[in-house]
Computed example of a mutant assay.
Amino acid sequence: MMNEGDVLLRHDEGRGVRAENGAFALQCDEARPDPAWDAFIGSTPGGDLTQTTAWATARQQIGVKAYCVQMRNAQGRLIGGCIIQARRLAPGMWVGIVPRGPVLATSEPGAAHALLQAIRREARQRGIGVLVVQPPEAAGLVEAKIVAEGYRPGCPSIAPEATLRLDLRRSDADLLEGMSAMRRRNIRKALRTGFAIAPEKDVDLFHRLHVATARRQEFRPVTLQDLHAQADALGPLGLCTALIARQGGEPIAGLWLTRFRGTVTFKLAGWDANAAARTNVNEALQWQAIQWARAQGADTYDFGGFDRRYAERILRQEPLGEKFTQTHSNFKLQFGGQLILLPRARFSATWPAVQPLLGPIGEHLLAGAWARRLAHRIRTASSTAVL
Rank of each mutant, 00 (worst) to 15 (best):
L374K: 02
K201Q: 14
T44Y: 01
T327F: 03
E137Y: 10
V98M: 09
Q291C: 14
E318K: 14
A90P: 03
L374S: 04
N274M: 11
A112Q: 06
A111T: 05
G46H: 00
S157P: 07
D48T: 02
A311E: 07
R120A: 14
K145L: 07
K189T: 08
R246A: 11
A345V: 03
A159R: 04
F40K: 08
R88C: 09
V264T: 15
L285K: 01
R379G: 00
G249Q: 10
Q27D: 09
S348M: 03
A277G: 12
Q225E: 13
D38C: 01
S107F: 15
A159G: 10
S329K: 04
F306V: 02
A284K: 02
A233W: 13
P153L: 12
R185I: 04
G150W: 09
I119P: 12
G249P: 08
L339C: 00
A311P: 10
H113I: 00
K267V: 12
G154D: 05
G46M: 04
R379N: 02
L164W: 04
D6Q: 06
H364C: 02
G362R: 13
W351A: 06
A54E: 15
R261P: 10
R72Y: 15
I83N: 11
Y67P: 08
L341M: 05
E122P: 04
Q27C: 14
D38A: 06
A375K: 13
P160V: 05
T300I: 07
G47V: 05
W94C: 07
P91A: 12
L320S: 06
A112V: 02
A114S: 13
R261S: 15
V103I: 15
I378W: 15
T380Y: 05
A58N: 05
